[in-house]
Amino acid sequence: MALKRVFYEEWQMGCCGEPFSVGDEIRWPLVAFGEGRPRDGGHHGAEAWVENHGDTTHPTTGRVRAIDLVHQEFTVDL
């Protein structure tokens, strides 16, 4: 089975995501980077992201092997 790193944005989970844990089988609608969103380095090595608001007719099924928490802060230059 191939491994794929997936970026799941907080707002996608907060809007319509289902809670998950390591070991859970999931069915997520994934979009590969390069299909509507450039791979700009801001997604921590992910190959795809979860898109709950697009075509959800062909979700990807897999098993969660690990979870990496990403924390981001912004600063304002005055």
Rank of each mutant, 00 (worst) to 15 (best):
S21W: 15
H53P: 09
T56N: 00
A48Q: 09
I67E: 05
L69A: 15
P59E: 05
N52T: 10
H71N: 14
G34C: 02
D55F: 00
R63G: 13
G23L: 10
N52C: 07
I67Y: 15
T61G: 03
E35A: 07
G34T: 01
L30R: 08
L30M: 02
H44E: 15
W28K: 04
E35R: 12
P59A: 01
R65A: 12
E47F: 11
L69N: 12
D40M: 06
A66E: 03
S21H: 13
E35L: 05
W28I: 00
H71C: 13
E25A: 14
G54W: 10
E51W: 15
E35M: 08
G23Y: 07
G23H: 03
P38H: 06
H71W: 14
E73G: 10
F33A: 00
G34N: 11
H44Q: 07
G54Y: 02
D24S: 07
R37A: 03
H53V: 02
T56P: 03
L69S: 15
N52W: 01
H58A: 13
F33K: 12
N52A: 01
V70K: 04
T61V: 13
P59F: 09
G45T: 10
R37D: 00
G45V: 02
Q72K: 14
D55A: 10
W28R: 02
V22Y: 13
V64M: 02
P29A: 00
Q72I: 06
G54M: 12
E47I: 12
I67R: 14
I26N: 06
W49L: 00
T56A: 12
E25C: 03
A32C: 08
D68W: 08
D24R: 06
D55G: 04
E73D: 13
G62Q: 12
A66Q: 12
G42A: 06
G36T: 04
I67N: 00
D24K: 03
P59M: 02
E35S: 10
R65N: 12
L30T: 04
E51M: 08
G42C: 07
V31H: 09
D55S: 04
H44L: 01
D40A: 03
N52G: 01
D68C: 04
P59N: 03
T60W: 06
A46D: 11
L30W: 02
W28F: 11
H71F: 15
H58L: 05
W28G: 04
W49D: 05
R27P: 01
I67S: 05
R65K: 14
G45K: 04
T61C: 00
E25N: 13
L69K: 11
E25L: 11
E35F: 10
A32Q: 11
Q72R: 07
V31A: 09
P59K: 02
W49F: 14
F33P: 10
E47M: 14
T60P: 06
V31C: 05
R27G: 01
G41L: 06
H43E: 10
A46H: 09
V64W: 03
T57C: 14
N52P: 14
I26H: 09
A32F: 06
H43P: 09
G62A: 09
